[in-house]
Design a protein around this nucleic acid. Structure first.
Lengths: 215, 215
DNA sequence: GCCTTGATGATACAGCCGTACCAACAACGT
DNA sequence: ACGTTGTTGGTACGGCTGTATCATCAAGGC
């Protein structure tokens, strides 16, 4: 059997082309022909690897989630060797903010998928409860560890704060995306709440008023 | 001139038909014919009142924002005669949560518009910075008043908390929409943060652990 | 060496989309 | 009373969509 190209690799290439087009023109406007052109292949090839558009979209979503997970892990690693819980949480939260092109793509396309999943039953199947739930429990676990190390202020409800931080990160991300807020001011807001949650082993007075000014 | 029907009223009817279809099938799947059928009029009529689809979408967005504003005001009014700042803020924040059909529609369609506005320049023009900015400054103003009445804990950054609460409300709303979280647990999270911000003139121990359990 | 099988490409086909055009009706001013 | 004008409906037209069909080429097993 002549297998000249790696099947999985080709699928990945096409999925990334899909994400590029979706980031540029919006997920709703993505057509099979656009994806093929962006990937530099023929329309037939896209159909060959993904028989139907629905399967292509599904794989694109999975690929997006996979890529984001890698990015988040890389961000945490970049926070230093064996970073503390706070640094890890900060890395996770800011990785989700649309600051550069890749994270903008992630946030925009992922939100598009989320919106789609509300009305399209095919998308609603799995990923939109699994992924955020995993992020939530991971964050809660980090906070729990931090609390056991006495890094967390007493009386803090770690599960509730995990939910709050993720919801804030998502909400702030969207407002960055639509141009209402700057990435810096969003990061300041998140930092402020981390300051509130964690014991003050950080420079005092990080309450600079960059929020009201930031766009 | 035979003006048998009120022009503005007809436009409103059609816009509401648009919102109903968008809530049911998703904004991306809305066509002129669907809107016409939903409104019980002919396709030509929709074209007559809104020459182009883009104008229809624009008006639909404006109408949605208008309806939400009315709803929020009604909610605040329902909070009692001359409600305190905290009750008003709570009413505002929970009005934005997708709890019933109307608020689900609002949240879904508004988010769809927001996502669209990132890639479509026509939508990006006005409303997506104006409306949230207005909500933000209104919320900040309420907090400022509350602080002057000594209802707010000392050391609270009201602008920052206004931003945080709105971002949380938006993020929680989305997670409700996709079925990750229950409206009750989202309301509990918001309440918790209001407890944190305001002085404790409320029943103590509202920290029931409904968050981890709620779906 | 041939033929099966994987891989790629060009083209065709319904179906839907937004928009435009044309026809008809009803009502007010004169 | 008439015709102008606001108002409504039926229908047609390109263009684009996802999908299916047909054709071609390359490569490895027998």
């Amino acid at each position: 059997m002549p297998k000249r190209v790696d099947h999985a690799e080709r699928r990945t290439e096409i999925a990334e082309a899909l994400l590029r087009v979706a980031a540029r023109r919006g997920l709703h406007a993505v057509g099979m022909r656009d994806v093929a052109a962006e990937a530099g292949v023929s329309l037939r090839l896209v159909q060959y690897y993904f028989e139907t558009k629905e399967k292509l979209l599904l794989y694109g979503l999975e690929h997006l989630a996979r890529r984001f997970e890698e990015r988040a892990i890389a961000r945490v690693r970049a926070a230093g060797h064996r970073p503390g819980p706070r640094a890890m949480i900060e890395a996770m939260l800011t990785a989700a903010l649309p600051t550069d092109e890749e994270s903008r793509t992630f946030h925009l396309v992922y939100t598009s998928y989320a919106v789609l999943s509300v009305t399209d039953r095919a998308l609603a199947a799995q990923p939109f409860i699994k992924n955020p739930d995993a992020a939530e429990s991971a964050l809660a676990e980090l906070l729990r560890q931090a609390r056991e190390s006495d890094l967390v202020q007493p009386g803090v409800d770690v599960e509730l704060e995990a939910v709050s931080l993720l919801a804030m990160s998502a909400g702030l991300g969207t407002s960055i995306l639509v141009g209402q807020r700057s990435p810096e001011s969003a990061a300041t807001v998140l930092d402020h709440h981390l300051d509130r949650i964690f014991q003050g082993d950080r420079l005092p007075d990080s309450s600079t008023n960059a929020v009201a000014e930031g766009r």
